[in-house]
Simulated scan of single mutants.
Amino acid sequence: MFELRRLRMLHELALRGTLAAVADALAYSPSTISQQLALLEREAGVALFEPDGRGVRLTAPGRLLAAHAERALELDETARIDLERLQPTSVPVRIAVMQTAAQAILAPALSLVAAADPDLRVEVAELPPEEGLFELSARRFDLVVAEQYPGSARAHRADLDREVIGLDPIRLAVAPDDAPTGLSDLRDRAWVMEPRGTAARGWAVDQCRAAGFEPDVRFEIADLTAQVSLIAAGHAVGLLPDLVWGDAAPRARLVDLPSAPTRELFTASRRSAARRPGIVQVRDALRRAFPG
């Protein structure tokens, strides 16, 4: 019989690629991970790993067992949730939330949760959507708040369940005393955008290209409040979602874009955990806390 803890380590190795990354994610030492995986290999009776430079990679049997490990973890989670539905427990709900959602909807959502179930513990970490969705699959979190920009689509994974929270308008943001009428007026300006590889960056660059120019991205900043400061001071222009302002008045002049684009905010959970009472409750609260 395979030990579930060792199968979890194998699953993590298949996702993260190195023993050091697995050790960091699971809060073990690399030597402990290596020892436990060696025991798993002995239990399997076949070679699960082979040398790869200074590290290891999975063999064909290793990849096969890693796939079975993922299903075993899903069954374990489903069993625990079914028991929790019969006998409620105080298992925490761990959430990864992107910055603007953390600023604008997290506090009111937590207030709704506390009013409905004061004993439900919610643990929150702020992470970019791409990282949060990866860590959701790796079981570091139970729920993720992420985004999808118009004209692009994140991969729909069979193991993840998605629910829309709301739609967030995106507008051109410039200094309060600036007066452009549209994107094409800003071809010679300095731009502030999120880092390369993010959905927000890809979408913003595409909008500029559609307007006939390549943006001069002089500032790469993930923190949208820092972007606001640069824009308000006249050092850059940018494309910002309305949620960044929260309940406060905008510190920049906002210009509507053609077709009034919106980004979609959604929650994602593992499908095997979607029926867990705490997750259902937190998702409902996030949806109710969304402005409008």
Rank of each mutant, 00 (worst) to 15 (best):
L4E: 13
H11N: 11
L13V: 09
L13N: 00
A21R: 15
A23M: 05
A23D: 06
A25E: 09
A25Q: 08
L26R: 12
P30L: 09
I33W: 01
A38F: 07
R42I: 08
E43W: 06
V46Y: 07
V46F: 00
A47D: 05
A47Q: 10
L48R: 01
G53N: 02
G53H: 05
V56Q: 15
T59D: 02
A60S: 13
A60I: 05
R63P: 01
R63D: 11
L65F: 05
A69S: 10
A69E: 03
E70H: 09
R71I: 12
E74K: 07
E77N: 07
T78S: 10
T78K: 08
I81V: 15
I81M: 12
R85H: 05
R85I: 15
L86K: 12
L86Q: 12
P88W: 12
V91S: 12
P92S: 01
V93H: 06
I95A: 02
Q99D: 11
Q103N: 15
A109K: 07
L110W: 08
S111P: 03
L112C: 04
V113I: 12
V113R: 03
D117T: 12
P118E: 00
D119A: 15
V122M: 06
L127A: 02
L127P: 00
E130Y: 12
L133A: 08
F134H: 08
E135S: 05
S137N: 15
A138C: 14
R140C: 11
L143W: 00
L143N: 06
A146E: 02
E147Q: 07
E147C: 10
E147S: 13
P150R: 05
G151N: 07
G151W: 02
A153K: 13
A155H: 14
H156L: 13
A158E: 12
L160T: 13
D161Q: 14
R162N: 06
I165M: 07
L167A: 10
D168K: 00
I170C: 02
R171M: 03
A173R: 03
A173E: 08
V174F: 04
A175D: 03
P176G: 09
D177A: 08
D177Q: 15
D177P: 01
D178N: 01
A179C: 08
D185E: 05
L186Q: 04
L186W: 00
R187H: 00
D188Q: 12
M193W: 06
E194N: 13
P195T: 10
A199F: 03
G202S: 05
W203H: 06
V205D: 07
D206K: 10
D206W: 00
Q207R: 15
R209M: 12
F219L: 03
E220F: 04
A222D: 04
A226N: 09
Q227F: 06
S229P: 05
L230I: 04
A233R: 13
G234F: 10
G238A: 11
L243Q: 01
G246T: 08
A248R: 15
P250F: 04
L254H: 04
V255G: 01
V255K: 02
D256M: 09
L257I: 11
S259H: 11
S259A: 13
E264Q: 14
F266R: 03
A268T: 02
S269P: 00
S272M: 11
S272A: 15
R275I: 08
R276V: 01
P277A: 09
V280I: 11
A289V: 03
A289E: 05
F290M: 04
F290G: 03
P291Q: 01
